[in-house]
Nucleic acid binder design. Structure first.
Lengths: 339, 339
DNA sequence: TTGAAAGCGCTAACAG
DNA sequence: CTGTTAGCGCTTTCAA
């Protein structure tokens, strides 16, 4: 059995209180006692039980995180910075990888409750009524990151997805394109589904371009779906000359679909992605993308959550809107009409 | 404050013992009492404290995982299956993302100790003596996955990296290549550094091909390093006609380096990767790779660890060697001498 | 079948 | 400065 505080006390010939005091760096301990306790701790290889400590302190230093898919380049990156920021503040993560399994999200939320995590970060917005209720009844600070659920009372750290999609589309239009395809997300997602679609279609309308349903498809943000949908779009009699995909993974899938159809990016079609994941630099041609400030987003999320946990009354409970940024690489080209 | 077992007992008009019994599904409780307790639980929205339970049971259902980089396609995938398998067995993960920071590994190991995790999975082999000692003194079952530290007493779930690298190289040789470049890992890593290098060089020697240092570079498994090293290799007067990179990420970097030098894969150079990550299908041409059974590896690792935790005496404490598999895609081509 | 009470390992009044 | 003691929320003998 691992040594306990009592063992240390006995070894050092002091009371458990004194041991506790040196453990927690209190000042009211004479130097010689402090030294004896420290030696005893070393000799025994003692490490305080976080469990016991949590029980009395009512604080676990745990943050629960719900993420749709840790193998996605976007989520693994944001998760990485969340972990880093949390760790620097002595918080640990407990992550739930949903993978389409909505029951799992509910189950994990219950686990978070049992675990008495100090806070929760959610990067998923398509939840059931049951989950919505649970989450609100939890009495644990929570925050959404990179998504904004329809429920206006929930607070998010996010970019303006509508504006970002609008700007991405305008970029394509600015290059002279007018037949612009769209590979969207799930329209049940407000943030990455609806808002990005609206940004796209409104940009078109504002420029007097007709929104062509044949050029529009919706998928699941993954490479395979971008690939399949691109092929569907290419099946049109007159192809678009550019396409906007709402995730880099889908954009890469689209590029592959184009490639496998014997066409070239950007000569035959321009492609623009969304997110700014590392995949943009891993493919050829390198993918232009409407980027989210991923690292900042993760850091800001954790910092804000920690302030909420600390019970900072000053902490405004409204959204934090971060800035998106277009990063031009090699996958888009000006369009010249050859007719 | 969240309701506690005492509140439930009061509400149901029974003792806490009885509540505990229905919570843990014991049989010796009369049906009517059981019903009353269940109703009280619902009314109060009670969820038992995992903390308190862990303290008395001396079991946390937590597994600590140490991974080099969760944004790597290989590690995010194996982590995903580890999480899945653990979750199905009612275990939760606490993951440490090292990111080159060796102090962080040590710090997390100490956290795992404080947390009293039930078991530890390590996917990193380049640890200090200090870590080696800590880990052994921990009295917590631990297991290495996808790596095999030099210390023979540690148990690993792994493939035969030497044989896999040997086979990959032989594949290239079989295609007629004799000038074969090598983009390796860190030679301080036994598994993915030394063993894969030895597999490569021995395959060459066995076929009477001279091992050419100018064609050999070592990096850090990441795309950027594959890119840079490939360019160095291409700077040779006579280029190799094929190259073997010991991670898919590096292989993709190499492909990009080749592309950016105005050369073509596989026409000018064949490229073969290692791991079998999803990146192999995301790039064009699709990357041939010596694949590890990633999903199986994650599952086997967790299953074995759980058996060790359960104190299964039958559980053999030796390595589990999984089978590697060559998956041929479009990045390699037979070599014909044009001289 | 049920309940009283001890104890898991630690912190924090409260005394001295 | 230092020690005694009462919990934190739960499980588990041991009796009834």
């Amino acid at each position: 059995m691992a040594p306990k505080i009592k063992d240390v006390a006995k070894q050092a010939g002091v009371s458990v209180t004194t041991v506790s005091r040196v453990l927690n760096g209190e000042k009211y301990v004479k130097d010689d006692l402090k030294a004896r306790v420290k030696r005893a701790i070393d000799e025994l290889g003692y490490t305080p039980s976080h469990i016991a400590r949590s029980l009395v302190l009512k604080k676990t230093n745990l943050i629960g995180v719900i993420v749709p898919d840790i193998t996605s380049s976007f989520y693994s990156t944001i998760l990485s910075t969340i972990e880093r920021t949390a760790s620097l503040n002595d918080y640990n993560l407990m992550v739930c990888n949903i993978l389409e399994d909505t029951d799992k999200e509910l189950k994990y939320l219950q686990i978070f409750k049992q675990m008495r995590v100090d806070g929760i970060i959610i990067m998923h917005e398509k939840f059931s009524e049951e989950i919505r209720e649970l989450i609100q009844s939890l009495d644990i600070p929570f925050l959404f990151s990179s998504v904004k659920p329809a429920d206006q009372q929930f607070v998010s750290v996010i970019i303006d997805d509508y504006a970002a999609a609008y700007d991405a589309t305008r970029h394509l239009i600015g290059l002279g394109h007018s037949r612009i395809g769209f590979i969207g997300g799930d329209m049940r997602d407000v943030t990455s589904g609806q808002n990005r679609y609206l940004g796209y279609s409104n940009a078109l309308s504002d420029c007097g371009i007709k929104v062509e349903d044949d050029y529009i498809r919706f998928g699941d943000y993954k490479t395979q779906s971008g690939y399949d949908l691109m092929k569907e779009i290419l099946a049109n009699e007159t192809r678009p000359t550019a396409v906007f995909a709402v995730s880099d993974d889908m954009a890469v899938g689209a590029m592959n679909g184009i490639h496998d159809c014997g066409l070239k990016v950007p000569d035959d079609l321009s492609v623009i992605g969304f997110d700014g994941s590392q995949l943009t630099e891993q493919v050829r041609p390198r993918l232009s993308s409407m980027e989210q400030p991923i690292l900042e987003m993760g850091k800001v999320t954790v910092d804000k959550l920690l302030r909420m946990i600390a019970g900072n009354e000053e902490e405004p409970l409204n959204d934090v809107i971060l800035k998106h940024k277009l990063v031009v690489r090699d996958s888009c080209k000006a369009y010249r009409d050859h007719s």
